[in-house]
């Protein structure tokens, strides 16, 4: 019996060593067959049962089974390790270069002027303004006459106008929509009007014969200058940021009285003066005022009953300031190298 015991132990020892020396799952599988297969050592040992003393046979059987269990356990353990290692090795082989560019769907960009118009109008929409648009080919009546700017008015001088005939022109401002909207709606009228306008300006870094404006109008009972200031100061804070200062200076527009221009403190120099603000520390951003009684009369509103304010701003200028664009022409060339930056 002792002899058999030793044999079993020797088999187990060899088996464990073989398992340990198997470095691939294939080698391990080979070892498994060699150790536990029908021609395996343990099976061969079991066949020698006949030569064992019958009395010792159950013991011997238990011994061999125990040895088998030990070997199987080791085999399984080793298999787990080897499978994990081989998987890890395979994943390592599958390593890719994550810095290579992706297959991006091509994306176009919204024009910065459109974006600017959206940003501005959205602020006014939140304040309850309706966004409306109007004709670009306009009549002298709406563009000038009804806006308290009769023929020979000095204010006509500063805007050189494209004419189609004596009474039809390309609008020089979005302001004619003030009149059209008041004619069309019952007060209160609360609108903002983005749109193209035209002036006979030679093309240069700051001028174009075509550009965009946004007009605003509120007409209701008891609208005062404080309301105008409050609305536009709120707009300036939202569009330019809380930290910018705002000031209102008296100015002149034929269709508002009192009139003002709104300046914001220069973001570049913080008000100290620089090239962008022409050393003034302030940048003019819009014109505004209370609606002139003559404009209200032109649409049949009673200026003693209704008052209002109006404002207008040039979109190109604001967009150029916002993005630091130094040449207006870039906005109309549509060069993708420019457009793709926004």
């Amino acid at each position: 019996m002792k002899e058999m015991n030793d044999k079993v132990e020797a088999v187990v020892e060899r088996a464990l060593s073989a398992i340990e020396n198997a470095h691939t799952t294939a080698a391990l599988e080979e070892a498994r067959v060699r150790l536990l297969g029908r021609k395996g050592e343990l099976t061969t040992l079991l066949r020698q049962m006949k030569s064992v003393d019958p009395e010792d046979r159950p013991k011997f059987g238990a011994l061999v089974n125990s040895a088998r269990e030990t070997i199987e356990k080791e085999l399984d353990e080793r298999a787990r390790v080897l499978v994990a290692a081989e998987k890890a090795a395979r994943l390592e082989l599958e390593r890719i270069d994550v810095t290579m560019p992706g297959r991006a769907p091509r994306i176009g960009k919204i024009h910065p002027l459109t974006r600017g118009i959206m940003d501005i109008t959205e602020i006014f929409v939140e304040m309850g303004f309706a966004v409306v648009e109007g004709p670009e080919v306009e009549t002298d009546y709406y563009n000038f006459e009804a806006l308290n700017t009769p023929q020979y008015h000095p204010a006509r001088d500063v805007q050189d106008t494209f004419y189609v005939n004596d009474t039809v022109l390309l609008r020089t401002q979005t302001s004619p929509m003030q009149v059209r909207e008041m004619e069309k709606r019952e007060p209160p009228v609360k609108v903002v009007v983005p749109g193209r306008v035209y002036r006979r300006d030679q093309v240069d870094a700051t001028h174009s014969p075509v550009f965009h404006q946004i007009e605003g109008l509120l007409v209701d009972h008891d609208i005062t200058f404080t309301d105008l200031k409050g609305t536009l100061a709120m707009f300036a804070r939202k569009f330019y940021g809380e930290e910018r200062k705002v000031r209102f200076r008296p100015h002149y527009f034929p269709f508002t009285e009192p009139s003002a221009e709104m300046d914001i403190s220069c973001a570049i120099c913080g008000g100290a003066g620089c090239r962008v603000c022409k050393q003034e520390g302030w940048i003019e951003v819009l014109g505004c005022g209370l609606v002139h009684p003559n404009v209200l009369r032109a649409v049949g509103y009673d200026p003693d009953e209704l008052t209002g304010y109006a404002f207008g701003m040039g979109v190109e200028r604001l967009v150029m300031l916002k993005h630091g664009i130094d040449d207006l022409r870039l906005l109309y060339e549509n060069d993708l190298r420019f457009l793709s930056q926004f």
Partner: peptide, 22 residues
């Protein structure tokens, strides 16, 4: 107003609910 000083005029936001939008 301009002798008084535009900057001395306070700011208010007009009352009244208006439904605006696009």
């Amino acid at each position: 107003a301009r002798m008084w000083g535009y900057d001395r005029i306070p700011t208010t936001v007009p009352a009244g609910a208006h439904v605006g939008g696009y």
